[in-house]
């Protein structure tokens, strides 16, 4: 078995022996249930009137139909994912510093590039699984709530946009790996995640969201049912470039920085 496969299997083992998969799954499970609950409220005007504040929140989601519901799921994975996927990444990298196991990794006869790559691969695979899990659960919940307006074309469009949002959000986690390595622990990456989350909201409201990497996935999520993409290819390129920058900077940090 080559070193990359060995490293991936070891990283997978480390991840699944921790509580991180359970925590992140539990947190992301809330998304479809909250979305389904809002749709349930929007479907019933009399219930909506009696719920006051919650109803007002639900009204922001639009109407009780599948385009609104799928758009809600996509935006939620884009925003919630920034936190959840970033949290996973910060754990995968930061734990080596906080548990001080980094020293054992650095002088092993294994390329540091392979170690970093295997960590990112495991992170991406687990986040993709979580995204698919939320989508499937969302479809089940949507069916249970009996949301109107479903068609196979809409379903395919919704799934496609949802997966694009998820994938772009996952890609945006690579800079978190760099901050976890640079900050030698969890604090810096978590701070970075919070700042990007806040900035993503602020920049999006100013109308420049399509040029700010962390705003882009959520903006794409709005497009479900509109028939055409809301953001341009430049936005997608910005996200990819940000991701590559995060990946390369993490690799360079592991390769060249003094690890004391």
């Amino acid at each position: 078995m080559n070193k990359m496969a060995v490293c991936i299997s070891i990283e997978t083992k480390k991840l699944f022996r921790s509580k991180i998969p359970l925590i992140t799954m539990a947190v992301l499970t809330l998304i479809p249930f909250i979305g389904g609950f809002f749709m349930f409220i929007l479907k019933d005007p009399s219930l909506s009137e009696s719920l006051g504040f919650i109803s007002a929140k639900a009204q922001l989601m639009g109407t009780a139909d599948w385009p609104s519901y799928l758009s809600l799921l996509s935006q939620a994975i884009a925003i919630g994912g920034l936190f959840a996927f970033g949290f996973i990444t910060s754990w995968i990298f930061g734990r080596e510093y906080s548990d001080r196991t980094i020293r054992d990794l650095l002088a092993l006869p294994v390329s540091r590039g392979i170690i970093v790559a295997s960590k990112f691969i495991v992170m991406i695979l687990w986040c993709l699984f979580l995204s698919a899990f939320v989508l499937i659960l969302g479809l089940i919940v949507g069916n249970m709530v009996d949301i109107p307006g479903m068609s196979s074309a809409l379903l395919m469009d919704g799934i496609k946009i949802y997966m694009i949002c998820s994938l772009l959000t996952i890609l945006l986690s690579t800079p978190v790996g760099f901050f976890a390595s640079y900050g030698r622990g969890y604090l810096s990456p978590l701070g970075f995640i919070v700042i990007t989350l806040i900035l993503a909201q602020i920049v999006a409201t100013t109308g420049y969201g399509e040029f700010f990497p962390w705003s882009i996935p959520a903006i794409i999520g709005i497009g479900i049912g509109n028939g055409e993409p809301i953001v341009s290819g430049i936005s997608i390129a910005i996200v990819f470039l940000t991701s590559i920058l995060g990946l390369v900077s993490t690799m360079l940090w592991w390769r060249y920085a003094d690890q004391s």
Partner: peptide
């Protein structure tokens, strides 16, 4: 061994 050795605590 570099100073106190550390291992993966959950394993």
């Amino acid at each position: 061994i570099v100073e106190t050795p550390y291992s993966y605590p959950e394993l």
